[in-house]
Design a protein around this nucleic acid. Structure first.
Lengths: 250, 250
DNA sequence: GTCCCGCATTGACATGGATCAATCGTCACC
DNA sequence: GGTGACGATTGATCCATGTCAATGCGGGAC
């Protein structure tokens, strides 16, 4: 997913930077920090990378850190005992990972692409939280945004048809990827399986709905189905069933 | 819903109390406040009640306040243009209402029972937030709990069968209502329509699944289907499809 | 270039839940 | 006690999506 957010630096370059130079400060938890807090953040952080497909944390794992996504894309999933899986969040660069105040991960975290995180020791971060209001209020704001996004997704999962779900996701990806280009074009960051998991559908249904949207002239495909083009975003948003201003759950 | 949480005082008594005496401080946003913050909170608050069925705020409404539920029970819903509705949260006493940092309501808020809220002027509350870390961190904690709950519900909406969904909700209500009594007994706070809205199902399906669970001896009904009894919570939790430790989205 | 291998697509069929419609209970009111 | 209204239940049927299975396609290794 890094490729559709060109602002984000490649991960090799990242490992030597500190919070002051963080290219994602505009959204990340340190966005409002000043001298002293930045120094504290910088003193407790480290970097770590995972390859696409690797597990960052299993449900119930001890998580000694919290952190921020620097590059790449990770998924949060919850599953039932018989193997049914639902994606409950998609982490993009600048998104926050982990849960201050809780030692174990409530869902499985998996690297969807190669990914690098900027990690903070959880307990030291919690201490910072209690006496740096900017950090706490910034994190609160991010959490509330995620809550809104999760609730939008509940509407999709509870009430939308398969075609509407697929159209919603494609519109979301297109709007993130390219606000300017015409026609809109985006490489799908997720394979069909991850899309199905996100949308509460099966792979086959996702595939059929994409084919149907293509047949009906709403989208076009390129590069073996991994790149989508759209000439008329308004038409795609109508297919999505609402005005389409929903945000992606983080 | 107030009747199943006997800790909560009746609303008539509430209107003259201040934050110090708030009977729901153990969970509410003021739970960690001390002298100065409590005084500030008390100075900006007011009380207001709505009757069951009344609308507290429509999607997109200006909301000049944030607040806390004192008594009663409210629902948060999102809807599609053609009328399909999904409940995205259920507010119980001590739950937080509204969104610091945003002027308009992102979902419709409706009183499910008679309800009383303790309201704070939004802008003054935001100011408090920036310089009272206890308030910000308490609110963060509550928001993260709601986020976890919303994500649990995404698993239900995306992957559970109708029977599992109904069993999950009934187990949730039973565990909130009565931890001690045997057999477990609870008055349903929600009618069939609200249950269906919460579960992403239709009224008819909810009704059929309740009938089926009764037929199979997992639950019993009383009082015209508004009170449920359960002799074996473990059996109900198995029907719910997971270990059942999910929380209710707030 | 060819052979795999993993992912995506397509097809045939089964089914869970929605839809449409009728009936039933319960409670409030007269 | 009778009546109306509203929510809940039950029944019959339909259809969207899941399931199972086969085929297609593109990219990397050699």
């Amino acid at each position: 997913m890094a490729e559709i957010r060109p602002l984000i630096a490649a991960r090799g370059a990242m490992a030597t930077q500190d919070c002051n130079a963080c290219p994602i400060r505009h959204r990340a938890v340190c966005a409002r920090c000043e001298g002293a807090e930045l120094d504290r953040l910088a003193s407790m952080k480290s970097y770590r990378s995972w390859a696409a497909g690797e597990t960052v944390a299993l449900e119930g794992d001890m998580l000694p850190f919290v952190g921020t996504v620097l590059s790449g894309c990770a998924t949060l999933t919850r599953s039932l005992e018989d193997g049914r899986v639902q994606m409950v969040g998609l982490l993009m660069p600048s998104d926050f990972v982990g849960r201050p105040g809780r030692a174990t991960a409530p869902y499985e975290v998996t690297a969807a692409t190669d990914i690098t995180l900027c990690l903070f020791d959880r307990q030291r971060f919690e201490a910072l939280l209690t006496d740096a209001p900017q950090v706490a209020s910034r994190l609160l704001e991010m959490s509330l945004d995620e809550l809104d996004a999760a609730r939008d997704w509940m509407l999709l999962l509870g009430r939308k048809t398969a075609r509407e779900r697929v159209a919603t996701l494609l519109a979301l990806v297109l709007r993130r990827a390219a606000v300017d280009a015409r026609p809109l074009r985006a490489q799908l960051p997720l394979g069909r399986e991850a899309m199905a998991s996100y949308l509460g559908l099966t792979i086959e249904t996702v595939s059929r709905q994409i084919t149907a949207l293509k047949r009906d002239g709403v989208i076009r495909l390129e590069g073996g189905g991994r790149t989508i083009l759209c000439d008329d975003l308004a038409a795609l948003l109508i297919e999505a069933g609402d005005d389409g201003d929903g945000e992606m759950p983080g």
